[in-house]
Every structure is written in structure tokens, then in C-alpha cells.
Nucleic acid binder design. Structure first.
Length: 628
RNA sequence: GGGCCCGUAGCUCAGUAUGGAUAGAGCGGCGGCCUCCUAAGCCGUAGGUCGCGGGUUCGAGUCCCGCCGGGCCCGCCA
């Protein structure tokens, strides 16, 4: 049930058929909301396009079209007219409003859903290396991934959310190395935070040893920042590492032994560290309302033979080559010989020769897998192990080329590269600061949540009707709403500029603003009691009421756009617009004390608005509140 | 150097997929509104050569070309 979608589709189809019959030409008919509700409800600029070929003025054509448009074929349509070259349609607002409101009330939590597809779809998101706490950048990934997965579910797909635990790379090996240098030190506070300091400190010490001049200065500076935070830990670690003649080799050796999976002591060392950090991640993600269906451990994929299996598959194609013991895929050769690979890598072979790194390394000379290698194996696991019909990898834009190479390799292995989608997003920028996990410079999700919560509590103090037990719960939920909104509301291809004031904004265009509008609908509905079975929408005459009905009706279409365009931010905008209209309605249209007739219609409208906004909030992971 | 992305009000962002009706919000500024369903709200007001220059078109913030500015990538890192 999607009244607006039905009207739009019928209007476009009827108009298109009419043009074919009358002129006869084929025209691309677009239909949109009329900017001013006094000019009509829906309109099409199709006459402009026809004007030159028919050698008539746009308005002349619009007049002809609007006169002969078969209104009976368009649900809720009552009249059509030509205005300034546009063919505008007017709807029977009483019947249209009733259809929209009833659809929302009857469908409840399902309002907004439509069947756009089916099959098993995986969204791999977050997947941060377990070497430091989740920061605002990982947070953006998690929020985009989770919201998009929720939307896919609403549109009929069988969705699973996966996290790739990258536990067998150099980063984790470095952290495990650091831990092995100070085995007696006790983990203090949240483990991901504690290990984050340990990791960054170890990284700084090692980098410091091999860098010279200005670069060394930078690492020194980062190390001193860390020393200020945890003097004993950093001092002891630095002392121990400096006893090691070649820390890098020690790290590489650990990595090798872990990937081989035979040394139980090494396995325990790695698992102890990574599981502690992952537990910290789980807690943070849980606060944000994000859960994964599976954590796929890179080490398990290696030990389970998935990477070997993938390697065999690539080998069979003849494009797997070896240099100093390291395997790589010769993508240039593949592109020269195969049309499909050329297409993935950008078409023209001359261009590919120039700009594409010709080789795609999968392993190191010492026999260990690179992330690229495990990623190829992981892709095989996703499609052939888990039989996914489509996979979205939510990964930063910095990995664009790597994801392209991965797709090409997936195609070489005989899988459909069209099923592997890189859901790319830009970074979160901290003005003035270069965020860097390796230097221990980041704003964590945990501190962001805590600071948001503190600010909300300040605001809640002295608010009537809310007792002390409720305050903590409300503050937590508002904090989550603020942060999730701030991380989703920007188009994924653009950077999010992080400032505390923007992210923790509690006013309009924010999570809390949306939550506030929702609580207002709940407040009215609590006082209203039963939702009337019968109501007369001809009482909904105010402009804001008409606008509100339209906005409610737009939810199904908005969700489809989010999917087709990979733009979950559109849903955040939708929720903000709906909340704005709810607030305007609230100020202008009394509900409970309205006269009979108006009252029933408005109660039903508020109920529908509450459902539409509530459903959008559920998808966005913005917690719903009864009061705040 | 090459490729990709971004550039809209003082600041943060929509609008670009599918060219269409006067370019919209918020923050910040200024001025109003709580005996009334929660003022985390609402109303009013000021603020824009849509980076610059060409082109296509009846019509360009939106499409094409060139340039300028910023970011990212071009690792046996991930």
C-alpha cells in the first residue's frame, strides 16, 4: 500500500500513453510534487520537451494534454490543468489523505516497505582492525552499514550483517608483539582503549627507530602525547622494545606463526588480545544499537582453507604469478586478454596500462597472506560458502582501487563481479587534527557518547515530569540519536566535518529534534485514547496538514531511493523534514481540544505521522522515546 | 605526474540519480511567541556572481569541455 507511488506511476503512464496516441511520439515523462500546493498536487514538465519537435508552445501542448488526460485511470485525481507549460494534476485530498493515513495505520511497522527485490544480501561493515577503539570514522562506517542493511531488509531482501575481524595482519601482530613485551601489565579500563594506547605507543617506538629528521620528529611528538596519558606503560614498553635488535622481524615472525596456526602459544596470545578488543567493540556497537549476525575471523578463513582455495582458482586462470616467493595476480595481462576484466578496470587498455598498477599482490615473500589475499578468499567464502546473491562492502573511499582490483580478481575466479559492490564513503574530518590510529589520535565513539550524555543530562535537570531513574535512560538514548544522525545525514561521498557542536547538536536538523517531534506525537496519542475507526479527512484543510499527509506518503518512495542510489542519508533528511512538519502542525493545529470531526481526523493524522516517523527512526537506529 | 571525489549564505549541509515552476534548511545575528497536546519548539527578519570560464538546451546549481582550490589513491600497509 503506497498511495502516492500508485498515483505517480498511473499519472506518468497515462500521460505517456496519451502522448503516444495524440502526437504520436515517445516522451520521457517525469512527475514531481508541485512546489506550491495552490498550483496543484503533482505536475509534469513533459510539454517543454515536446515543444520543439511538435513546433508548438509548451503551454499549448500542456493545455491539450491536460484536457484529454483520462482522469479515471489515475487514482484520486479530480482535475488537470496547464500552468506555465506544466501539466498539473489535482487530487481529491479527502480521499487521498484517507488512503495515506489508513495505509500507515493498518500497516503499522510495515508501513514504508515495498518489494523491490529478494535473495540473500550481505552487508559487511565496520570491520575495524582490533588494535584501537572505534573512533568517529569507524562510527560512520558502522552507522552507514547498519542503516543501509535495515533499509534492504525493509525492501524484501534477506539481509545478514557481517564483520571481518582482521586478526592476522601486521597491525594486530604489532599489538600482540607489544603485549608480549609487557605480559605482566594489567589491562586498565575498557580493553579496546587500553590496547589502543599500547598499539600506538609500540608503533611510534618502532617508527621512531627507523625514521630520520622531520618524520622522526612527528613520531616522537605522538609518542610523547601517549607518554603523558600513560607514563608507566609507555616507559616500560619503550625500554623493552629497545632491547630488541629488530622489532620488525619479531612482528613479522609472530604474524607468520599465527597464520600457520600450529603454535598454540602464539594462537592464545593473539586471541587473548583480539577478543578483549572485540569485546570492547561489541559494547560500543551495542550502545549504538548495532549488532552483527556474524564475526568472520580472518584467521579462521586462512586455517579453514578458503584463501588457499581462492588461490587455486586464480591459478587455474593462468594469471597468478610469483616473485621472490610472493604471489600476485597479473591484472594487466588479464586486462589485455579479457574483455570482462578490461571493463571492470575502466575500459580502454591504453588507459589501464598507464594508470593501473599491473600487479596485485596477495602474499608476502615469507609466505604470509596480505589483506588483499585474505579478501579474495573472503569473497569466495561470501559467494560460494555463504551463497550470497549480493554483497555490499562498506569500506572507506581510500580503498577504491583495492576494491576494484578485488572485483577484477573475483571475476577471474568465475564469479559475477556485479554482485560485489563497494559501498564507498568519505572520512570524518577533525578540523586541525590529522586522525591517526597509528599515532593514537582519534575521537572515540565511547567518549562521544559520554559527552553527549552529559550534555543531555544537563538539559534534563529540572524538567518537570521526569524522574531521576528515567533521566539516565533518556540521556543515553538521546545521545545515541544525536550521534547516529550526525554520522548519517551527510551524503556518503562527502566528508563529515566533525565538531562537537555539530555532532552534539540538540536543535533542529538533529537526532534529538526528530526524537522530540516523535515524543510530541506520542504525547497527543496518549491523551487521545483510542484511534477513531472512522474519520473525515475533509476536515484536514490547513496547508501544514496537507503537507504532512504528503510527507507521510513519501516514505515508501524515499526508502526505494535510498536503496537504488545507495544513499541512506536521504532517510535522515526525510525524518528531519517529517519532524519539521510535525512541529509546525503541533503549533498550529490543536488536536485534543479541537471540535468534533476535526479532532478525529487530526488524531488519525497524528497516528499516521507517528508511525511514519517511528519507522524511519527504527531504520536509522534513532531510539524512540515517550517523553524527553 | 596520472586517476577518482568534493567546491552552494559567515559556518555546517540539502538540492545534481531523472535539466524544469521564485536555489532551500540548520547553526550563528537581529526581533517576537509559554494561564494552551513537552519552548530540545514555533513565527518573523537579514544573509547567495551555486569555485572560475566556455559550451549544449526553450530552460543549467544539475549535462559536456577547460581551468583554479581542497581531499584520497597510485605499498610484499589495510
Amino acid at each position: 500500500m503506497d498511495p502516492l507511488g500508485e498515483v505517480k506511476a498511473a499519472f506518468a503512464r497515462t500521460l505517456s500513453d496519451l502522448i503516444m496516441d495524440s502526437y504520436p511520439v515517445r516522451a520521457k515523462v517525469t512527475v514531481s510534487r508541485v512546489p506550491d500546493i495552490r498550483l496543484g498536487d503533482l505536475g509534469s514538465p513533459v510539454a517543454f520537451e515536446l515543444a520543439s519537435s511538435l513546433r508548438k508552445s509548451p503551454n499549448e501542448i500542456a493545455v491539450e494534454l491536460s484536457r484529454s488526460l483520462k482522469l479515471s485511470l489515475i487514482p484520486y485525481a479530480i482535475s488537470s490543468e496547464a500552468i506555465g507549460g506544466f501539466v498539473n494534476l489535482r487530487l481529491d485530498r479527502k480521499r487521498f489523505s484517507e488512503a495515506v493515513i489508513k495505509a500507515a495505520i493498518q500497516l503499522g511497522p510495515d508501513f514504508g516497505s515495498s518489494k523491490v527485490g529478494e535473495g540473500k544480501v550481505m552487508v559487511e561493515h565496520t570491520s575495524a582492525n582490533p588494535v584501537h577503539p572505534l573512533h568517529v570514522g569507524s562510527g560512520r562506517n558502522a552507522v552507514i552499514g547498519d542503516t543501509f542493511a535495515n533499509i534492504l531488509e525493509k525492501l524484501g531482501f534477506e539481509v545478514s550483517r557481517h564483520y571481518l575481524v582482521n586478526d592476522s595482519g601486521r597491525q594486530v601482530s604489532l599489538l600482540v608483539y607489544a603485549r608480549s613485551k609487557i605480559p605482566e601489565a594489567e589491562v586498565e579500563g575498557k580493553p579496546d582503549h587500553w590496547y589502543g594506547v599500547l598499539y600506538a605507543a609500540c608503533n611510534c617506538v618502532i617508527e621512531l627507530r627507523k625514521r630520520r629528521g622531520k618524520e622522526a620528529e612527528e613520531w616522537k611528538e605522538a609518542l610523547e602525547e601517549l607518554r603523558k596519558r600513560s607514563p608507566d606503560l609507555v616507559n616500560k614498553l619503550e625500554e623493552e622494545i629497545n632491547k630488541d635488535g629488530d622489532p620488525e622481524s619479531s612482528v613479522a615472525e609472530l604474524n607468520k606463526r599465527y597464520q600457520e596456526g600450529k603454535d598454540e602459544v602464539v594462537k592464545v596470545m593473539f586471541r587473548e588480545v583480539t577478543e578483549a578488543v572485540m569485546e570492547g567493540f561489541r559494547q560500543t556497537l551495542q550502545r549504538l544499537g548495532i549488532r552483527h549476525d556474524a564475526y568472520d575471523w580472518e584467521s579462521e578463513l586462512i586455517w579453514g582453507g578458503w584463501i588457499e582455495k581462492a588461490l587455486e582458482r586464480v591459478k587455474k586462470t593462468g594469471y597468478l604469478e610469483k616473485e621472490d616467493g610472493a604471489y600476485y595476480v597479473n591484472l594487466l595481462k588479464a586486462a589485455e586478454e579479457r574483455e570482462d576484466i578490461r571493463e571492470i578496470l575502466g575500459g580502454d587498455i591504453e588507459e589501464i596500462r598507464e594508470k593501473m598498477p599491473p600487479i596485485y599482490y596477495l602474499s608476502r615473500s615469507d609466505g604470509t597472506w596480505l589483506y588483499t589475499g585474505t579478501d579474495v578468499g573472503y569473497s569466495l567464502y561470501k559467494f560460494e560458502g555463504l551463497k550470497q546473491d549480493k554483497v555490499y562492502n562498506v569500506i572507506g573511499v581510500d580503498q577504491k582501487l583495492a576494491q576494484l582490483q578485488l572485483r577484477a580478481t573475483v571475476a577471474l575466479m568465475g564469479m559475477d563481479p556485479g554482485k560485489l559492490v563497494h559501498f564507498s564513503y568519505e572520512f570524518v574530518d577533525l578540523p586541525g587534527v590529522k586522525m591517526s590510529g597509528r599515532r593514537g589520535r582519534y575521537v572515540t565513539i565511547d567518549e562521544l557518547l559520554d559527552e553527549a550524555k552529559r550534555r543531555v543530562k544537563d538539559l534534563l535537570k529540572g524538567r518537570a515530569g521526569i524522574n531521576d531513574e528515567e533521566i539516565d535512560d533518556i540521556a543515553e538514548k538521546v545521545a545515541v540519536g544525536a550521534i547516529r544522525y550526525a554520522l548519517i545525514d551527510v551524503v556518503p561521498t562527502k566528508k563529515v566535518i566533525f565538531t562537537w557542536d555539530r555532532v552534539l547538536n540538540l536543535q533542529e536538523n538533529s537526532g534529538p529534534f526528530i526524537q522530540y517531534a516523535y515524543t510530541r506525537t506520542r504525547g497527543i496519542l496518549r491523551k487521545a485514547g483510542e484511534i477513531p475507526e472512522e474519520f473525515d479527512c475533509s476536515y484536514l484543510k490547513e496547508d501544514v496538514e496537507v503537507e504532512l499527509v504528503y510527507k507521510i506518503a513519501e516514505l515508501p518512495e524515499t526508502l526505494r531511493s535510498c536503496y537504488y542510489l545507495m544513499r541512506p542519508d536521504l532517510l535522515a533528511q526525510y525524518a528531519n523534514e517529517l519532524a519539521t512538519l510535525i512541529n509546525k502542525f503541533y503549533e498550529r493545529c490543536p488536536v485534543i481540544r479541537a471540535e468534533e470531526g476535526v479532532r478525529e481526523a487530526r488524531i488519525a493524522l497524528v497516528k499516521a505521522a507517528s508511525i511514519a516517523l517511528g519507522n524511519a527512526m527504527d531504520l536509522l537506529g534513532i531510539p524512540k522515546l515517550e517523553r524527553m
